[in-house]
Design a protein around this nucleic acid. Structure first.
Lengths: 208, 208
DNA sequence: GGAACCATCCCCCAATTTGGAGAAGCAGGC
DNA sequence: GCCTGCTTCTCCAAATTGGGGGATGGTTCC
């Protein structure tokens, strides 16, 4: 049946790997097309196995799962990755999502949880705990506190997009000199001396 | 009991508003401190009511819920916002999360779902459907395809952080001329002529 | 072996940007 | 009224930028 969902598993723990494989193979619509102990092995066979979904352990010997996802996404952009993590809510899971994973399950997930995660990914969802979801949205929510004025914040935002002072002046409807003046005021308040430093500080303080 | 969680509700539909209030007031650890039909009203009373959590409708008459969250976060940065949305998975919910909401429920959620959402927010989670979660992570995942070489991508990433060509040269361990050479090549491939245009194009194409 | 990239470096030039220092007009707060 | 802070503007010297070239090794592919 070519309609089966092709699944590859990358997991160094044999019990977990075989357990997942047995479960998935017992279900008609799934087909395990690859079982790998290392990321390196999975990468070379990626093209040949052509999985729709890869269950990827993060803590692998050699190349870790995060770097592996980056590599494998380059080989097949349509493939989707589900993290297999030991810890429920780790920073690593968050990093894996940034690298291109679309969800995750834990090693001791029960059958239903595993199958649910796969089904949700297939139907366009991204299964994750609410704690992970919070980490994700926190990462792009900005702070409410700022030492800068409203105008300076506007200038800073334009600066962050890579605009020069004259482009900022044009978009804000002020003269070049004024936009430069705001920039200098920003530097002073953020205690920096260059554009790069200002942007680094602003990102660190979640102003942008 | 000052230990009760103070909750404000902003919702123009009377039935929904009163229904939520009745439910929450029936529970000992919650206390409804504000019931508002409009965002404007909620904003002026924000400081006085001092809620821990605000249940915020998105589709309000006058100021919408998204703008309201932005305003109210400025008044009380510690307050947390839960969206009340009609549609399960809309673009608006995503925008609200960007504006600072930490989760959402639907108008026809049952009691358990509402209480679960509040509890999860209080315990550091961000309740949302897996579809919304997918929208969120998709927004910061980058494309796997790029017309640029590996080195050019590195240069582009540094450029995006606001570095000058000499700073890029230093961090990549090459001469200024080489980094400028890469930049020129990037411009040529992206068909642009300035740093700003290159960054716009790169963002649009999800290269960065 | 040759073609086609890639990454690295070098030169020249003019226009623009940048950072630093200083200052004027205008509002709001006490 | 005075002071502070915000927005606005001016001059200068140094650095960056974008646009022309061109050169060297190193691949990878045919």
């Amino acid at each position: 049946m070519s309609l089966r969902t092709r699944i590859a598993i990358v997991e160094d723990n044999t019990a977990v790997r075989e357990g997942f494989a047995t479960l998935l193979n017992s279900i008609d619509k799934y087909m395990v097309v690859g079982l790998h102990e290392t990321a390196e092995e999975a990468i070379v066979l990626m093209e040949q196995e052509n999985p729709h979904i890869v269950l990827m352990d993060i803590g692998l010997p050699g190349m870790n799962g995060i770097e592996a996802i980056r590599e494998m996404r380059r080989i097949n952009a349509r493939c989707q990755f589900i993290i297999i993590s030991v810890h429920e809510d780790s920073e690593l899971v968050f990093q894996a999502l940034c690298a291109g994973a679309t969800g995750y399950i834990t090693k001791n997930s029960n059958y239903m949880e595993i199958l649910n995660a796969i089904n949700e990914v297939l139907s366009g969802g991204a299964p994750m705990s609410t704690k992970i979801a919070r980490m994700v949205i926190s990462s792009f929510q900005t702070s409410t506190y700022t030492p800068l004025t409203k105008r300076e914040m506007e200038v800073l935002q334009e600066l962050a997009r890579g605009k020069s002072y004259s482009m900022i002046a044009k978009s804000l409807g002020i003269t070049n000199e004024t936009s430069r003046s705001h920039i200098k005021s920003i530097y002073s308040k953020l205690e920096v001396n260059t554009k790069y430093e200002a942007l680094e500080k602003a990102k660190k303080d979640k102003l942008i």
